[in-house]
Design a protein around this nucleic acid. Structure first.
Lengths: 335, 335
DNA sequence: CTGTTAGCGCGTTCAC
DNA sequence: GTGAACGCGCTAACAG
């Protein structure tokens, strides 16, 4: 393993000069001639800096830690792509960790990431509404922040006391509802996801509120998993009931797709007998038929912003930026 | 920032003892009583080891580097989920980097990852068939291996001279073709993806060979991007031709979905007027209609195996494990 | 501008 | 068993 001092020796300069040649110290500069000699020696010897040593010696860390529920979920992987872009824009790399949405593993993952002393931490995804768990996570997060000095940003609801890219679920869902009321829908149901899931709850609330305000009537919401299968199960439950509304709002796209699959399996045509809408506008799902009415979110951009926010956090402290969604009316709610 | 020596002081032992209390040195052991005192002090002081220091001091690295084309693509994100599982099974974390499939950025990313001195590197995804570029990548990879001592594994075709999880594209595609011939298909076309893409080529070759062997006839394959839009464009091109085969094989699922979208837009019903098959069995795409005939790949498992292979690589040198796919006949090729 | 020196936090020889 | 001392590769004060 060739080290910087090997390079320095080969170039006939001191270690310090070699170091400065690489990452031009702010105040101290190096004569171009020497700099070139160092760079050439480095190339000749095939030198690659050791990030661990740099970090230990007080250099800046260039890693961004990212916590998601599962990277296999398109919602998270899209955001991850944005985070990745944000990180590489300043020469950083992303260290990925997944934790379910149980606080236990989230805290555990946080501890593992603490060892890395990353420059920034992005936590993506819904948090449970349980006050205890919320408090635990807040504590772990602020502890992490204090300990590592890293910037922290959360993507989701602004309830963690850290910088957050707040997705305006409630107004966006309301917009969707308004558009749908405008299309003449009146009786609806919400496939509301997990009972204590903040994001799910916000979407359900926004949608329901605006529908009711528009004169529509709601049937009892159905809870379940925030997944495709959760959507499927919820739809089955709905179809087993006596009264069936004309519109189903699933709080995310994958649930909506599951719900449509269930309807199909039960022989209920969408949108003819039943209309369905989702939320997120997942790219991979844009080609399903009927095409899904939903709320578009620029997920990659959200990830990128989260990185910027986390980086700023180090300087300016916690901030919140809001991002909206835009209603996309498609076939699944065509009357 | 509390360090190990703080802990040692608080526990009234030496630094060395504290270190051994944490990660029990092979030969040297610590009296249980002291060990407990150290652990308690650590907890009390909220000590977290510094990974960079550990690495620098000669401890083992616990990071697995992962290179994908884009993490937003479900193919890659599924594999990434497996890699993540594999890494956390030994307490490791994954550092994610994306590089297109141009060698330039791949080599550049490799250089960035070299700084991290990871324990293992997983490179996922198609490589271009250009001999020059292939050689460059092989060189960069073996250089990386030599330099960092990390285990390396590749997911794809075994052409890089490193351990690889080889996806048996050709036989699997042949199986698909055989099944389809059995259904009575005779005239077909392949949406073949990029011209110099090894994986795409292998799939096209396997499929075409078996179809021809089964007595079917091929029309000129259509090349394009390995993406949804590439599939769409290819299908448009196909439909603009005079003669239209009865079966279209897209070399991956996202292309197949794009192709089906194009057929739909052009008013060509699938599977009635035209049948479509894909490859990968992407989870998110399982609910599209008509459901897609494809070759199932256990992507998460593939990612996990890649990690094991890379870890073994450090000891036993390059190996290749083959993974097959299984044909899944669904609606999109129903006669 | 450039070189010398002192650590960063920890694992690991060595002595005891 | 335990502790003292050294060094991993590098950056950041200090001097010159």
């Amino acid at each position: 393993m060739v080290t910087l001092s090997d390079v320095a020796k080969a170039a006939g300069v001191s270690l310090a000069t070699a170091s400065r040649a690489f990452n031009g110290s702010r105040d101290r500069r190096v004569r171009p001639e020497l700099r070139d000699r160092v760079m050439e020696a480095a190339r000749r010897l095939n030198y690659t800096p050791n990030a661990a040593a740099q970090q230990l010696a007080g250099g800046e860390t260039r890693s961004v830690a990212l916590i998601v529920h599962t990277i296999a979920d398109p919602y998270f992987s899209s955001i991850a792509a944005g985070v990745e872009r944000g990180a590489s824009s300043f020469g950083g790399i992303v260290t990925l960790a997944s934790a379910g949405n149980d606080i236990g593993s989230q805290v555990e993952v946080l501890e593992t990431l603490t060892r890395q002393r990353p420059r920034a931490l992005i936590l993506v995804g819904g948090v449970r509404d349980d006050p205890d768990e919320l408090a635990r996570l807040r504590a772990a997060l602020s502890h992490f922040r204090a300990l590592t000095g890293a910037g922290v940003a959360h993507v989701g609801q602004p309830v963690l006391g850290v910088s957050t890219v707040a997705i305006d679920n409630e107004p966006a869902s309301a917009d969707l509802a308004t558009a749908l009321v405008g299309q003449g829908f009146s009786r609806f149901v919400v496939l509301a996801g997990p009972r204590d899931h903040l994001t799910a709850a916000a979407r359900a609330r926004g949608f329901t509120g605006a529908m009711l305000a528009g004169g529509a009537t709601a049937v009892e919401p159905i809870h379940g998993d925030f997944t495709r299968d959760g959507g499927y199960a919820a739809m089955v439950e709905l179809l087993d009931r006596d009264d069936r509304p004309e519109l189903v709002f699933a709080v995310n796209d994958v649930m909506a797709v599951g719900a449509m699959a269930a309807a199909r399996d039960r022989g209920v045509p969408v949108p003819d007998d039943l209309c369905v809408a989702g939320f997120d506008d997942i790219v991979t799902l844009r080609d399903i038929t009927p095409s899904l009415t939903t709320v578009h979110l620029d997920l990659e951009d959200i990830g990128e912003r989260a990185v910027r926010l986390a980086l700023d956090d180090q300087a300016s402290g916690p901030q919140t930026v809001h991002v909206g969604g835009s209603v996309v009316l498609r076939e699944s709610t065509r009357r």
